[in-house]
Design a protein around this nucleic acid. Sequence first.
DNA 1: TGAATTGCCTATTAAGTCGCTCGACAATAG
DNA 2: CTATTGTCGAGCGACTTAATAGGCAATTCA
Lengths: 141, 141
Amino acid sequence: MLTQRSKYALRAMTMLAASKPGDLVLVADIAKQRKIPRKFLELILLDLKKRGLLHAKRGKNGGYSLARPANKITFGEIIRITDGPLAPLPCASLTAYRKCDDCEDEKTCGIRRIMRSVRDSSSAILDKATLADAFRAKQQF
Amino acid sequence: MLTQRSKYALRAMTMLAASKPGDLVLVADIAKQRKIPRKFLELILLDLKKRGLLHAKRGKNGGYSLARPANKITFGEIIRITDGPLAPLPCASLTAYRKCDDCEDEKTCGIRRIMRSVRDSSSAILDKATLADAFRAKQQF
DNA sequence: TGAATTGCCTATTAAGTCGCTCGACAATAG
DNA sequence: CTATTGTCGAGCGACTTAATAGGCAATTCA
């Protein structure tokens, strides 16, 4: 399950994706409109900024905007930043591989093989799904 | 990421799958061979038993065995018991659906749509992968 | 019958994570 | 200068996770 943190991040990002590119949006506005605790949201956005997904400007008339077009920012990126690796096991992760402490032989591990295919199918979806896709879905109705 | 609990469960179950069907295996033996804290493992196995995946017998010459053939027990079942729903969001779960507290309109939610497809692809794999599959993978080498 | 074995069950604990808040600071516009 | 707005560090309560402890209940077998 995604953490609340990740849910908030996705919601905030889809809101930014819906606003005009380059337009600056206030944390306070995002918090209000998406019902996210303001101070908590600050931390999340800051993180997304540090990882290059957002651009921020301080001071009056400041705010946040996407650092790239909405169709160039994927769910996978966002979730990895807020929640960590997508893979069910560290030994099945590409972006954050780690050997299992007590794994006898990784090559013959049936559990790993299956978790690896779960990882592959999940990231196939999440690394392809962009903010623009999510927004488009909303627009259809 | 799976919890330690789930990892232990999967390891224990694959060990039981490797033993002769109907044979009783001691908790202590599983714990030793798979390097799982014994008392912790007891709790896990008990849970799996209550949910119908294992059969147990008490007293001397007792132990655990699979309640069904290894090719009828899936990873999905095991993980749902030990870790809960597979879906990344409650609103995207089939087996444990729950509406998001503050979701405006589920039908138009782009996030949900994507998470739903992640769920679908994950469970397509995990509800098909059986203990026998994992064991077979190991045997190949 | 009774001792040994083995799973069943309830509590408890230590450490960590999650969700969130507070207060001060730094940059920027006007 | 002042108001605004993001940045940052610290901290906190509730919960979860991983594990331990200890006794009870069923079963075997001598």
